[in-house]
């Protein structure tokens, strides 16, 4: 028989032997040794290579290696097959039964939205500051350049705890605390709950959540403010969103602006945040020299952003605790 025929014969015999693959460990091992062992059939064919001519040898080597690999592979796959089939499970196990399910929790959509806002600003170097919900008139209004008896005070309907103490109407009170306690430069966002004495309806509630931001440094410009807010808006609402800066008025910023984004669905501009350059009067109130320090500030409502993002039509959903609402936010 030529070597090639011998190879073929070993292969056929192997295939016949593994057809009725043994179950006992020892028999399996014996079978492996018979063919693939050090003195097995494949090894003995390799030893016959010495009798071949130099021209024949490479070809023969190739065949033998092929045989060895093939046999080893088939053997292993038989062993695997057997291992899998061997566990002695219930023959009547019904895998169509439902799974055993743990309860699902969920994060509130306002928390998610706030986290997203925090992530965007911390990604560009902002830190986060927090402050009190109940504050004195000075920190909520006067220090922010809301003069007493000025129509600007009507812009925010206020809950009073005492004639001089209010539920903060914005988190801007924290920028005053921050600047009173720290020297510039500062670069923070300030999230928190704020209150407005407004009738409750689908679009307004007696409280909401705000994120304010402030950056104070030398040579801060309106151009930079635009850059930071364009970055924010595009991260939040997508790279293609159309936006505009529109002049507005806030007592603690000047120039002031409102940012609108274009809603293709509603075919109109929607206001999403207010911003501006920190008014020099605010710097004077906290003891910063306004001839050296400049800055910008901005503020946005978390509810408003969540409503736009998730297309929520009624602000009251946020505070109802209705699981049919909560479970929708994954």
């Amino acid at each position: 028989m030529s070597l090639k025929d011998k190879i073929e014969s070993v292969r056929n015999q192997f295939l016949a032997d593994i057809e009725s693959f043994p179950t006992a460990q020892q028999e399996i091992e014996d079978l492996r040794v018979t063919y693939l062992g050090r003195k097995g059939q494949v090894a003995s064919l390799f030893s016959e290579m010495g009798s071949l001519s130099a021209e024949e040898r490479p070809k023969a080597g190739q065949w033998l290696n092929q045989l060895k690999t093939e046999l080893a592979k088939q053997f292993e796959s038989k062993v695997d097959e057997m291992d899998q089939g061997s566990s002695s499970h219930d023959p009547f196990l019904d895998p169509t039964l439902p799974g055993i399910t743990p309860p699902l929790g969920s994060i509130h959509p306002l928390e998610r939205t706030l986290q997203e806002i925090k992530d965007i600003f911390t990604s560009i170097g902002f830190h986060i500051a927090y402050g009190p919900e109940i504050d004195d008139d000075y920190h909520n209004f006067s220090a922010l350049n809301f003069p007493e008896h000025h129509p600007a005070r009507d812009m925010q309907d206020t809950f009073f705890v005492s004639p001089d103490t209010v539920l903060r109407t914005h988190t801007s009170n924290v920028q005053i605390h921050l600047m009173e306690n720290e020297d510039p430069p500062i670069r923070h966002i300030v999230p928190g709950r704020v209150y407005r004495n407004e009738a409750i309806s689908f679009k307004s509630y007696c409280l909401f959540h705000q994120v304010e931001g402030i950056y104070v440094d030398k040579n801060v410009s309106f151009g930079e403010l635009k850059g930071v807010l364009e970055y924010f808006v595009r991260q939040m609402f997508g790279p293609k969103v159309k936006m505009r800066f529109r002049p507005s008025f806030f007592p603690f910023t000047e120039p002031s602006a409102e940012v609108d984004i274009w809603s293709t669905e509603r075919n109109q501009w929607l206001e999403i945040l207010g911003c501006g350059m920190v008014d020099p009067a605010v710097f004077e109130n906290v003891g910063y020299d306004s001839s050296i320090w400049h800055g910008y500030a901005f503020g946005m409502g978390v509810e408003r952003i969540a409503m736009l993002k998730y297309k929520i039509d009624d602000i009251r959903h946020f505070y109802q605790g209705d699981v049919r609402f909560l479970e929708q936010f994954k």
Partner: peptide
Amino acid sequence: VGFGFRQVYNNSL
């Protein structure tokens, strides 16, 4: 959330 609780936000007033 891992324990299977859903978070709520309630009115402070």
